[in-house]
Write a protein that binds this DNA or RNA. Structure first.
Lengths: 230, 230, 230, 230
DNA sequence: AATGAATGAGGTTTCATTCAT
DNA sequence: TATGAATGAAACCTCATTCAT
């Protein structure tokens, strides 16, 4: 599920319908809620691939095998659809983070697993990165608006704090580290690598998948562990 | 039904309208090249603020105190303008990097300075980040196209390689580090922090300037140094 | 120089403008297909009067009492609209030709009627000529594209073949004539006269309507009949 | 010299010039009048290939290896350039017609040669046809304006009158024919065939060159001769 | 719940033409 | 004579959105 997928080659002209089609229009209701989900899923792909302003309502509805009108029916506007996309993208990530059961593990090992998880999540959900980039472009405009997002917050940060504290208690980690900064560093190393792989590989002439990726994974773990180890 | 019918009074070719121009035209040629520069500068701002698809040609030309037409005169299309913007943004950074004179410095200190430089550059050139993000969104489409960009490459990577080698020679750094990964890590830590400050501060409820920024600067240096030190 | 700068007050996505619409929108849906027909009819007039490149989308939509957008809604592009115009113009002529019931008539008389019909059709459908001229200018570009046109073909050619054969059987016509060439000659004589009347009358200083037209009609019939008569 | 030739692939974007070019502009005067001729020649091709409204000033200047400005320098406007094109196209044809020395020949043979000449001229100067078609589209607008054109007139019509008179005198031709109509018929048969070859061959599925052309040539001569012979 | 039709505003691009040197 | 720079007007086309059924 890369942002390369369907999303339609963007050229397809919406219309040019011939005068033939006269028989009653074929409405195919399917329970309703289903359409909503399909639109949301399509919107994630499209916004991820083209950004907010580049993602066309039309392209989304087409990718959802529905029609423009339904987007307004369910979401009211393109922008509100985008907010829902943001919410879903975050919620999905937080759900995945919640499933991480690292509280019992050895702190160092927990750290390693957390780094790996982050990298894997970004790799398997690249849409998350581009959508966040977009939100950063707009200076957090929608994130700020969304009540849902403000109410929640990343379970991973809490997790990181717990891991860190246990590491300190066990005498494994130095005590003068801010868990938030540690946490952000994990994100940073992985976010950058995944998000910038296209421009990077253009310059470095090497693709950043395969062995390079494995090497980076080891390196990122190493950097993080060394950052806290006494 | 002859072709004579209403269809409007007009005239087949636009030239027939000649002489009707009213109000004195205010053309203020200035040697040409100047306009080009102004457009490029304006485009950097606008694309940085709104992205490629969100950055309106019209807004750019106005910001450059010129008119749409000149964009096409000098650049041919919005997209080619974007490519030039990309080129300029990279070139500017590489020029700044070239001014770094860290070859004589103590390797550790050189590393520290390099981290600091990167952070400062991103902070003072945030347009670089959003423009790169956009390019990543488009999967490096334009970077790949630009011959200029492919021919050049970051002086900083070379610099980092030299610093690292000297550190190893002096017995300060461990020998099993890939300079490229070290280099990317410096970028990653700073890129992420600056690029994501809006969404991050929305979630973390704290702004990431001021003291937080100072703290991050120290932390980033620390992370990098620890990553290579024996 | 942050992306915050002036650059205009706007908003990245157009949707933010919502709700500002003033004055009541006057949409007058009419079942749809009607608008399509009106556009097509208007397009015939406009393209006939100004050619493909001279025929402005804007002028067409206004003549159809609709708006530009609907042209794209129904036809996709100006060029596809032109193709449909071509198709319609041909189809209309072929329909008219189909109504010719000349199979029972005396071959000579049938020939005469056919010549007259052609002249009359061109006179009453001058748009046909200019549109065809345009297509010839473009070297048959659109005719070649249209599947519909390629599938069909002029009933008149068949008719001409039948008339000719009967004439030969009855010993009225000489046997060494190619019906296709005979047919083309009928078109040629009438096409030229009607199509070139403006330039011709400019040079000849006489208008080609009225008596001149009557005279030409007799002449054309005469030429064609003499061409085949034994 | 078909209208297919250079004329530039129409896609070439006029500008997108880089900021490099700083040295003094290279003016390469060449005697002046030469440029004028080159523009006129280029304009004939371009207007022939695209019509008046479709023929871009820019494309013309480029095809003439000059620049837009020179068109205005020499011709004042696109439309006046078109008028000159019209004039030249007519003048060239009249010159060719003047070279026809058919006054001594046998009337029948003269007729045959005249038909052949017309066909050949159209075939070798297809630009003539499309440019005339264009002028007809515009209802003779420019032809009417041009004083030069009105002062002159086709030598061929005079020639035809002389041939016809001699034919009548010799008892070869019937006496009740209007030479003008005879003349127009010659033009018509050839004009139609050459002008419509693209659309015709699209429908008839056969190209109209080669053998078909030879056949048509014989046929046209035959039609004309039969039209006047007693 | 679902959809075809309609639309205003504006987006990118092109055009003929003029200015200034 | 020649040319680069500049420009208003408009061309084609697209977008998000609403109406009406």
């Amino acid at each position: 599920m890369t942002e390369q997928t369907p999303v339609a080659p963007s050229t397809a002209s919406r219309s040019a319908r011939k005068g033939k089609r006269r028989g009653r229009p074929k409405k195919q209701p399917n329970g309703g809620i289903d359409t909503r989900e399909k639109i949301l899923a399509a919107a994630i792909k499209v916004f991820a691939a083209r950004g907010l302003s580049g993602g066309r309502v039309n392209v989304i509805s087409r990718a959802a095998r529905s029609n423009d009108r339904m987007i307004y029916y369910y979401f009211g506007s393109k922008e509100r659809l985008f907010v829902e996309v943001l919410e879903k993208v975050y919620r999905d990530m937080w759900e995945a983070e919640s499933a991480l059961a690292l509280d019992q593990a050895d702190p160092i090992e927990a750290l390693e697993k957390f780094v790996g998880f982050t990298l894997d999540y970004y790799l398997s959900h690249p849409e998350m990165l581009t959508i966040l980039n977009n939100e950063n472009l707009l200076q957090g405009k929608h994130v700020t608006k969304s009540k849902k997002l403000k109410e929640l917050s990343s379970p991973a940060l809490d997790l990181m704090e717990r891991i860190y504290r246990r590491g300190v208690e066990k005498g494994l980690f130095r005590a003068d580290v801010k868990p938030l900064e540690l946490y952000l560093s994990v994100l940073a190393l992985n976010y950058f690598y995944v998000s910038n792989r296209y421009t990077l590989s253009a310059f470095l002439g090497a693709d950043l998948t395969g062995d390079s990726l494995k090497s980076w994974r080891r390196w990122a773990v190493d950097v993080i562990v060394r950052a806290v180890r006494v």
